[in-house]
Design a protein around this nucleic acid. Sequence first.
DNA 1: CTGAGTACGTGATCTTCGTCACAGGGCGCT
DNA 2: AGCGCCCTGTGACGAAGATCACGTACTCAG
Lengths: 240, 240
Amino acid sequence: MLSPYGLDIIESCLTCKMRVDRIFCDLPTSALQAFESIKYATAYPKGAVLFVEGQAPRGIFVLCKGRVKLSICASDGKTLILKIAEPGEVLGLSATVSGKAYELTAETIDPCQVNFVKRDDFLRFLKEHSDACFKVAEQLSEKYNVACHEVRSLGLSHSAGEKLAKLLLEWSSKNGEAQKQEPRLKLALTHEEIAQMIGTSRETVTRLFADLKKRQILQTKGSTLVIRNKAALRSLATTG
Amino acid sequence: MLSPYGLDIIESCLTCKMRVDRIFCDLPTSALQAFESIKYATAYPKGAVLFVEGQAPRGIFVLCKGRVKLSICASDGKTLILKIAEPGEVLGLSATVSGKAYELTAETIDPCQVNFVKRDDFLRFLKEHSDACFKVAEQLSEKYNVACHEVRSLGLSHSAGEKLAKLLLEWSSKNGEAQKQEPRLKLALTHEEIAQMIGTSRETVTRLFADLKKRQILQTKGSTLVIRNKAALRSLATTG
DNA sequence: CTGAGTACGTGATCTTCGTCACAGGGCGCT
DNA sequence: AGCGCCCTGTGACGAAGATCACGTACTCAG
């Protein structure tokens, strides 16, 4: 098979090596085979738009490789990034299940491999494979959970500094660097994008970083970021 | 059966008159009977707490009568009301499905009748009744949708006036008063609670109402509120 | 009737951030 | 090298709204 956009294509869900720890891929063989027959394996370059908020749901997108930016945007162009989706996640699930419009916009930020399933096929698949249906319920619960956290952080953590601290801690915990004394992480996003993740302006993010550096809490080496004082950061994340 | 707290108890899901338009109650008879056998019909007075955020999930609560306030709160006591749940809604669903802690707190604001189902029983029920499982997925999608709207409103509609206008329009559309020239609605919440719904302070809500009255957009007669200028309110809801 | 408790109304300040404006810095491209 | 583009850094300013502090009005119990 071709390898467009520099991707090594994963051929089949049955032999995919990522299977084990992924919620949706971890299904009995019979269900996986059925899934295999209705999915379309597709590849996208960086910057491609999978779907836009407000569109009628065409189906689901199972992300196999690469990262996807999930965002909502206001009429005045202001954007809020909800999440950067990682491989194993199912995108467009809730809209596809409920039949309502996609509630957010999905745009690739890496070259991505995606399995697309048309809405009708997917709904039929769910009715025929009740264990898949249960998995979907689990996935949706998970998404709901994340959304609730987002709501909490937007609605209650009033200061921007608090939200940034939370974001940094969350990132460091994902990288498995959390337990280290001085976790380090790659800053893969621009200040602008970080601002859009915590609902503030680019300048504020810049100033906050400057402040954290001055207070010896952070340190940067090129695009890697070192958390020098976890405790201080954590207290910022809860106090404001 | 007793009628505590001034409630007329609905005896059975099979004969419940609200069934038709409720997502979760609308199941084939066999599934309903199974549900009937695992549910506990309970009644709560006003002000009772069904569950608290952070608790391990005990099970689901199907709201049959009365209203329930769903909120999250910060360590400093600040509270954000996400939603006032109405009869027919299933509360604690996502936590029960995923096994994670309840993500919010549910407190009755009327005398309520509730059907409780223990987590284990409910999960077994879902595995055995795939159509119920599909309904659950639909419900969760719906909840996710609402959460996304909340995120949008908190993260993007920056001014408090905008959020209040949106809230009032939403309320008037629920009462079926929306199509009228001058929709009227009962203010069932205090300014404090409204503030908690839109993430602002009590004083700001008071001031906003005063302003809307001065500009002839609203008018109050006791606790009923009349929207005198829908167009103006709508433009506030989109412009800020 | 009276006092307590609770909700509402309103002014005076004080913070936080958003916005505008501009200056430097890194980097690829021709 | 020289140019343009995008990201970052920083100052000045203003607006929105949180907070404080108080006064008023209504309700309810004794």
